[in-house]
């Protein structure tokens, strides 16, 4: 992510050619992500059907959104989704670093160039780094963990439900009518979630920098 700026804003400011490129990346990434998500889902016990579990499974959200055709456009993705993705990316870079260091046994850190998606750690990830690579099974596991962790940061279940709905691609109006709240309240709460997650992401970036 370009530092604290929201990816959505960044996407909105892309010129036609750049946006085309971003869309192409996304078009390639999306089916792979969903395929991966589906196969992961098949392995997971049926607990995802549990309605009580608000944070649910982010894959389920992805599949729901994909089935409803909500995922096709880069611009349709809310900040929350990009924040989640960026957070996951940071964590996987972190993991690869630590594993590599352990394997080598000497605590030496691999040169940056050897790590895909690594160079953006402190300066913010580029779009290419965010969705340029096919998601690995490990990535999916981290995505799931990050999803749960980020949801856990939120104050209450209502905020979690809003975050999940937004990641599934629902509009503010749709979420408002679902929860019987004003659209202004949904906007206000989304901003609250964005702020919380952005703080977390900046923290993760700093942490990575200091390692």
């Amino acid at each position: 992510m370009p530092n604290q700026h929201s990816v959505s804003q960044w996407i909105a400011s892309l010129k036609a050619g750049e946006l085309d490129a971003a869309q192409k990346l996304w078009d390639r990434y999306r089916p792979r992500l969903i395929d991966r998500a589906r196969s992961e889902l098949a392995r997971v016990p049926k607990r995802v059907a549990d309605e009580e579990d608000v944070a649910q499974n982010v894959f389920l959200s992805l599949c729901c959104g994909a089935a409803a055709g909500r995922f096709s456009d880069v611009r349709n993705r809310d900040d929350l989704w990009w924040l989640l993705l960026a957070m996951t990316q940071q964590k996987s870079v972190d993991l690869i670093r630590r594993e590599t260091a352990q394997k080598r046994g000497g605590g030496r850190v691999q040169p940056e160039s050897a790590l895909a998606g690594d160079s953006g750690a402190s300066r913010g990830l580029s779009f290419d780094q965010l969705i340029g690579n096919a998601p690995t099974p490990e990535f999916i596991v981290i995505l799931e963990e990050e999803n749960r962790r980020l949801m856990g940061l939120l104050r209450d279940d209502q905020l979690r439900k809003i975050a999940v709905s937004r990641i599934e691609g629902y509009t503010v109006v749709e979420i408002a009518s679902e929860l019987a709240l004003s659209t202004r309240s949904i906007e206000r709460k989304l901003q609250l979630i964005r702020n919380a997650w952005t703080r977390e992401l900046i923290g993760a970036e700093r942490g990575l920098e200091t390692q």
Partner: peptide, 27 residues
């Protein structure tokens, strides 16, 4: 859908400014 089922304000301690404003608006 109504809100009764929600476990609201699980974490009342150490609320941030935006949380306090959000909760006041909810009330």
């Amino acid at each position: 859908m109504q809100n009764e089922g929600w476990k609201r304000s699980e974490r009342v301690d150490g609320l941030s400014v935006e949380d306090r404003i959000d909760l006041a608006c909810d009330r």
